[in-house]
Design a protein around this nucleic acid. Structure first.
Length: 222
DNA sequence: TCAGTCAAAGTGGGAT
DNA sequence: ATCCCACTTTGACTGA
């Protein structure tokens, strides 16, 4: 290893210390370690980290200063080893409790805030990936349903074109046509009409049958 | 050199 | 008060 504390490009990474006057509120702090509001809750930059380590391994200060006079830290690129360990940890748990965070930060020689941010961004990436996959799946669903819809509309048109007058049934006695109201359904047809889901032979050809796979069933996790 | 992409970090707000 | 999330900004990197 040995690359901890350095960016992949080999830049020396040292911590930037804001000016001693805390009144310079116009410029962003070099380490706004806290979340909203920059409360620096995780790190008092004037205190040595982890019992005496001289500096944190990131954020070398580019010596060129902003207008306000506050140096801006260079952005950290985590080393491959750091990324690997973070990924490894992420596979075990997607969120960290404070102790885990602290331990991991110490192991990686990062600030807890950096570990926290990494997990936050990693969760966001996972979610984005999942959403993209879901989107692709829904697009495919939409495509196949559109096709199915077109096919069914064509079928309706065909059936409409084929439609003829109701069949005439002749009386076996008089050989005269019977009124439709006097016709009765055969027991089998009656059963199917009352409970269509019980008719095994019709299920396979039913135009409205459900697809074999349900939505989202195939979406991988992560 | 520059546009595009990725990822670290900042910010504000909601939930607990 | 703290954590997490969504959104944004910004620096590093890459390929044309």
């Amino acid at each position: 290893m040995g690359s901890l504390g350095r960016s992949p490009s080999g830049l020396d990474l040292t911590i930037g210390v804001p000016g001693s006057s805390s009144s310079s509120s116009s410029s962003s702090p070099v380490w706004s370690a806290g979340g909203g509001g920059g409360s620096m809750r995780d790190l008092d930059i004037n205190q040595p980290a982890y019992g005496g380590e001289e500096d944190y391994p990131m954020g070398s200060v580019d010596e060129e200063e902003e207008e306000g006079g506050t140096p801006r830290p260079k952005k950290l690129r985590l080393s491959k080893e750091q990324s690997r360990l973070l990924e490894e940890s992420f596979t075990q748990h997607h969120t960290l409790n404070p102790k885990q965070k602290e331990a991991l930060a110490m192991k990686l020689e990062l600030r807890p805030r950096q570990v926290e941010v990494w997990f936050q961004n990693r969760r966001a990436r996972t979610k984005l990936k999942h959403t993209e996959m879901e989107c692709e799946f829904l697009k495919r669903c939409f495509g196949s349903l559109t096709q199915e819809n077109r096919r069914l509309q064509r079928e309706v048109e065909e059936l409409r074109a084929l439609r003829v007058a109701p069949p005439t049934v002749l009386s076996p006695h008089t050989r005269q046509p019977l009124p439709a109201s006097s016709l009765t359904m055969c027991p089998r047809c009656e059963r199917v009409t009352a409970a269509p889901h019980l008719a095994p032979s019709s299920a396979g050809r039913h135009p409205f049958r459900r697809p074999a796979t349900l939505p989202f069933a195939g979406i991988a996790d992560g």
